[in-house]
Structures are given as C-alpha cells and as structure tokens.
C-alpha cells in the first residue's frame, strides 16, 4: 500500500476539468493551501467546489475565482470576497448557498453511506424550494441528499502513511467530514509520521477514508481577522 505522494501536483495528477471537489476549511483556517496552489498551477477549469467559504480575493479559493476556474460554488457564507460577489451578481458564477449545518451533514451522510438526511434548517425559506418535506413530531424537516464529490481535498495537522489523520484546534472544522465523503480523498499534512506514532485513541479520521497523502511545507496560514488583547 502506498498512499504517500511527494507533493500536491503529483497527488492531484489525474484531476480533470469539470470535476466536483470538496475543500476543507472555515474561512482561511484549515484550508488545503497546497492543493489549491496546485489547482491554480494545473489550470483545471469548470470546477464545482463544495466549501464552506470561498476564500478572500487573493488567498484560498479566491485564487481559483480570479482565474475563472470555478463554474459552480456550493457554500454557506461567501462574504469577504469582492470578486466572488462580482461574479455571482453578474451571473458568471453559479452559486448554491446552503445552511452551514446542512453542508456539514450532507458531507457526514456521504461518509456514513447514507443517501440523505432530514434537517429543519431552511424550512419556510428559499432554501426549501423544490425540496421534499416531512413532519416529525411538531416540526417540518427538509430532505437533503448526501454530497457526491469526485475528490475531497483536506488539510490535517498530522498524518501517517496509512492515511490516518489528526487535526488541530478549529482547523478541524469540515476537514474530517470531507475526508470521509470524497471518492478520492487527498490529505495534505504538516507532519507525516510512521504508523504507530499516532495514538489510536486520538485519530480523528481512520486511514480507510484517505487515498493519498503528502506533506505540505511552508504553510502561510493567513489570519483573516487578527484580534488581540493589548498588553499595554
């Protein structure tokens, strides 16, 4: 078994135009920086991207937007990105905005082998348009289907060559869910360790879900809102 690749470009070698991708991260926290750079370098187009956010103008998915590589974006929150808003309002970019919990749970369903879930989020709003509903108890729920993604691109803190992954702090967010949901899951990690180095009790995603893994170097980890307490 060899899941280890040397870098993002080699790990993404067979990724084609028109692919549906999941990308982990919340804002710029825990995004697969190196996979995104490789997508820019490869110049693949007509991508459908499933990601909670769309990056900022010059980092994260914003880099793919600038190059017009994304045809459709499925996200929950896309503020903080002027180019995104421009492409959306001008109709260049197809956008499906869905509730954040629905986004997470549609990933979860895929990773758990369930075709759909019921959630009350969005009932009575335009999110519910055209969707099947069902009443349980005194509440109405929407039927939401599991995502199908050709690739999931995720960022973990540590991983081993069997693909077992561990995440750090709030950079976990959507990463484990997407890792479990992709038909081909590619994980970039800050540190690649030997099997046995990770405590089996502390592994967040079992390697069975992860097909390819590589070490990313020199992470930028840009901070979107730097808020601090002054020592003065």
């Amino acid at each position: 078994m060899n899941k280890v690749f040397t870098d993002a470009l080699s790990a993404l070698h067979d990724l084609q135009d028109g692919t549906t991708l999941m990308l982990g991260g919340f804002g710029l926290c825990g995004i697969p920086e190196h996979c995104i750079s490789a997508l820019v370098q490869k110049g693949v187009r007509n991508l459908t991207c499933i990601s909670n956010n769309a990056g900022v103008d010059d980092f994260g998915l914003g880099l793919l937007l600038q190059n017009h590589q994304i045809r459709k974006m499925i996200a929950s929150y896309v503020g903080e990105n002027a180019e995104f808003e421009r492409q959306l309002l001008s109709g260049e970019l197809e956008v499906e905005l869905i509730p954040q919990g629905t986004l997470a749970t549609r990933c979860l369903a895929a990773g758990y082998g369930m075709p759909a879930i019921y959630t009350p989020a969005g009932y009575g709003t335009e999110v519910a348009e055209g969707k099947e509903t069902r009443v349980f108890g005194d509440k109405t729920y929407l039927l939401e289907t599991a995502f199908e993604a050709d690739y999931a691109l995720v960022k973990a803190w540590k991983g081993d060559r069997l693909g077992n992954l561990v995440f750090r702090a709030t950079s976990r967010n959507f990463n484990p869910l997407m890792a479990m949901a992709g038909k081909i899951t590619i994980a970039e990690v800050e540190e690649l360790v030997e099997p046995g180095a990770l405590d089996p009790d502390h592994i967040h995603v079992p390697g069975i879900y992860v097909h390819r893994i590589f070490v990313g170097t020199n992470y930028e980890k840009r901070i979107e809102q730097r808020t601090v307490r002054s020592r003065a």
Partner: peptide
C-alpha cells in the same frame, strides 16, 4: 476564551467570525 495576547495569535484557533481567540 477571550482574544489572545498580542503575539500569541494562533491561525488554527478562530471563532465563527474568523477572529483569533
């Protein structure tokens, strides 16, 4: 918790408003 002390920001640790915490 509260915002970090200046110089102790951790890019892996943010809130839903994307602020360092």
């Amino acid at each position: 918790g509260p915002f970090p002390w200046e110089g102790e920001e951790d890019p892996d640790l943010i809130n839903a408003g994307k602020q360092t915490i």
